[in-house]
């Protein structure tokens, strides 16, 4: 973020009630209204406002609040998923072509271990991208051996694993063992339904961090990247 753009955004902020805009944007997302969400960003448009400011001031707070709402049982998963997708699409429009990550961060990848339930991965993928992070998507149904091979090949520093089934969650232990044997210090972040029902499961399988929703993932990745909020 350069100084000039910060000044520009400050100018816009002085005329604009940002919390109200965040609320407006969030309501548009929860109503699954792509056009209304886009209008909120268009209304804010100012030549000096940078994409990272849209992300930091509007998109991330809105997604964060939606994630917390889901955690508390007030918002449904379908709303979380579609919100993430809308934000990702909007960011695609805002960012210049040949999209690049908005902030420097460790090389990251995401995968669904063993099974084919991709929703959790897609939500985390969307929310992270909408928050300015880029990551490699290893898809679903990947085995432990395939995953470890790809981590080695791609030199992944932060690995996010999404699981739905308990049996898949327990396989994370094998991923950790193989990475340790290969002397790789890849950070493993896990999430998914089994971890919501057993707070000790992440530790049991050797994950470095457990995230219960996508916005927790964003906060953690931000911290790991050493980015100041």
């Amino acid at each position: 973020m350069d100084d000039n753009s910060q000044k520009g955004f400050g100018k816009t902020q002085s005329k604009t009630n940002i919390p109200a805009k965040v609320h407006q944007f969030e309501q548009a997302l929860l109503s699954l209204d792509r056009l209304a969400a886009e209008r909120v960003l268009i209304d804010l448009s100012d030549s000096s406002v940078t994409p990272s400011q849209y992300v930091e001031q509007i998109i991330v707070p809105a997604l964060d609040h939606i994630g917390s709402g889901w955690e508390q049982g007030e918002i449904a998963l379908s709303q979380v998923y579609i919100s993430g997708r809308i934000c990702e699409e909007l960011l695609g429009k805002i960012l210049p072509s040949g999209r690049q990550s908005l902030q420097p961060h460790p090389k990251m990848a995401i995968a669904v271990l063993q099974d084919h339930h991709q929703l959790g991965k897609r939500i985390v993928h969307s929310v992270l991208r909408a928050s300015g992070f880029e990551l490699i998507d290893y898809g679903a149904g990947i085995t432990v051996n395939e995953l470890v091979d790809r981590i080695k090949r791609d030199e992944v520093q932060v690995l996010l694993i999404s699981v739905l089934m308990l049996s898949s969650a327990l396989l994370v232990e094998d991923v950790r063992l193989q990475l340790d044997r290969a002397d790789l210090d890849t950070t493993i972040i896990i999430g998914g339904a089994p971890f919501r029902f057993d707070e000790n499961l992440g530790q049991e399988v050797g994950a470095h961090h457990t995230c219960l929703n996508a916005t927790e993932g964003v906060e953690l990745v931000t911290r790991l990247a050493g980015i100041e909020k």
Partner: peptide
Amino acid sequence: NGPPNSGR
């Protein structure tokens, strides 16, 4: 060690 899962 778990229930059968649906594939693709």
